[in-house]
Design a protein around this nucleic acid. Structure first.
Lengths: 118, 118
DNA sequence: GATATATTCAACCATCCGGTTGACGATTTC
DNA sequence: GAAATCGTCAACCGGATGGTTGAATATATC
């Protein structure tokens, strides 16, 4: 077990997991639906969700036979605060942000959903 | 070789490396001086510095027989941008952000980090 | 109750990661 | 030129990581 900040950074270091977080930004999703766009086993996605949950980046709630995954963006605050220590006060170009997130969505493979204008 | 963002997050996922970055916030340092406070071999620190350099978080310049390490905080902007996509709760001075957005309407924004190629 | 669906668990595998030690090349100093 | 210092390289090691497959567990549906 490492410290929380290390855990969060490590969780964010995987493009599949970042893609999952981006998907959850849209809406809560059940595990199978999270897995659908990816070209890997459901089991692998389940593990990724485990990592994200242990880092506090998502929460999971079982309802019926589905498990709903919800983004917990507060967990990223620790990261945000840490980064803030390095003088990055320059605000962000929001258009660039959009392009960046779009690139993130496509980064993990050709089979990811094409997001309509959010 | 993974995408730049993954590389940066992975580099930041280690507490020793984060401590090094914090030290470099104070001033540029030679490798041996960086290693001094840590209870591990110089070689291990050298590797950590390698990881940080490959992520673009520091640069190294050889002068004489010393190698000076310098923080490159710009590399963290990619992280900052990505994080901001999640809730926009950055503890940034909100007034500054507003001023920025206002200014953004009048002139083209600053250039941002290059997209990770898929 | 039987069957299908949703998710995890367990075992396994290859690779990566963070550390060690010892040897090596480069540079400064004597 | 010899010796000390600075830093990396190479080989090695144990443990973590990211993936697989197949079995197991709940829950829903027929």
């Amino acid at each position: 077990m490492s410290d929380p900040l290390s855990q969060i950074f490590a969780a964010l270091a995987d493009p599949t997991r970042r893609a999952i977080l981006t998907m959850l930004l849209e809406d809560d999703m059940a595990v199978t639906d999270v897995a659908e766009p990816f070209e890997m086993s459901l089991s692998a996605i389940s593990k990724h969700l485990q990592v994200l949950a242990e880092a506090g980046l998502i929460s999971r709630e079982k309802r019926g036979r589905l498990i709903w995954c919800r983004l917990e963006p507060d967990a990223m605050r620790a990261v945000s605060v840490w980064i803030q220590g390095f003088g990055l006060f320059e605000p962000v170009d929001l258009d660039a942000l959009e392009r960046f997130l779009e690139a993130e969505l496509q980064e993990t493979g050709p089979s990811l959903p094409v997001e309509p204008e959010a």
